[in-house]
């Protein structure tokens, strides 16, 4: 479950050391945009040591490495992969070939270093080319488990202004969700960048959820709680999911095929959604009784 993913600048020890306390389901240690070229090596060591010595207590550890065509990429893999990251976020992913190159480099490094754990890969789609190639990228290798939309670089590439309403990224959002779901991967939304706009983040997260995103990233710890709330099932949703499962069980016991609940047919998609909702509620420790 990754409702929220929080970027932590790779050169900020205070944020790194407290990363697991900020409420996010996953943290993204950032070695790319948050770190100037002069500090790349220092940040890499800091992130490596943070991963080695800090207990993240159930918080997933993702690292945004530098892009595959930069001189930093190979060194990032060398330093980070031995620490067992759950996932690498691969910036500026424009084509399937680039992502396959990253996959191959990761495999090579893992074999050379004798690593058991294979990190997943999450291409960061932040160029027009990446958006247009989204499905090919999502489906290019088994290591790709999710797509990630980066709207700041994308709007620069599109030569348009990034706005709070996000009209300019509507196409990219829906395209990415479609591509990711078609390829059977997860998909995560871009951060909302105004850290002081509490209403804005709520609306933006709700929009992302409505479009089908699996979760949303954040550059501010202040947004994490809202994102978690928006991407958690509501008590009504959980209650309904249990009703669906009860109705299914009852129909089975009575030997009925099709059943209705509140006057509506319960079919396979409804059942699978109910199962997902219940699984998420259980993962969040929300019992059925609480929603009753």
């Amino acid at each position: 479950m990754r409702r929220s993913m929080l970027f932590l600048p790779g050169n900020n020890p205070n944020m790194l050391i407290n990363g697991s306390c900020l409420g996010a389901d996953a943290v993204i240690f950032d070695l790319e945009d948050a770190v100037s070229p002069a500090e790349k090596d220092a940040a890499r060591i800091l992130v490596r040591n943070t991963m080695r010595y800090m207990d993240f207590r159930g918080c997933e550890r993702i690292v945004r490495v530098n892009a595959v065509d930069t001189p930093y990429f190979a060194a990032d893999l060398e330093a980070i992969l031995p620490e067992g990251p759950d996932m690498l976020l691969l910036p500026k992913a424009g084509t399937a070939a680039e992502v396959q190159a990253a996959d191959a480099a990761m495999t090579q490094a893992e074999e050379r270093l004798g690593l058991q754990k294979r990190a997943a890969l999450m291409p960061l789609i932040e160029t027009a080319l990446g958006v247009e190639n989204a499905f090919a990228i999502a489906a290019c290798c088994p290591r790709v488990e999710a797509l990630f939309l980066g709207a700041e670089d994308l709007t620069a590439d599109l030569q348009c202004k990034r706005t709070k309403g996000g009209r300019e990224i509507e196409y990219a959002r829906t395209r990415l969700v479609m591509a990711a779901r078609a390829a059977g991967t997860e998909v995560y939304d871009t951060p909302f960048t105004d850290v002081n706009d509490d209403e804005g983040i709520e609306a933006d997260a709700a929009l992302a959820k409505a479009l089908g995103f699996s979760g949303k990233s954040s550059i501010s710890p202040r947004h994490v709680e809202v994102i978690n709330r928006v991407f958690s099932p509501s008590p009504e949703e959980i209650r309904y999911a249990y009703e669906v499962m009860d109705a299914i069980a009852e129909a089975k016991a009575q030997g009925k095929g099709a059943i209705a609940l509140h006057g509506k047919m319960v079919d396979a998609p409804i059942v699978s959604r109910a199962q997902r909702t219940i699984a998420m509620a259980q993962a969040l420790g929300i019992s059925r009784e609480v929603t009753a």
């Binding site: 306390c21 409420g23 710890p221 709680e225």
Partner: peptide, 9 residues
């Protein structure tokens, strides 16, 4: 400070 805000919440 994000840690301060987490504690405050």
């Amino acid at each position: 400070d994000p840690v301060g805000l987490v504690m405050a919440a």
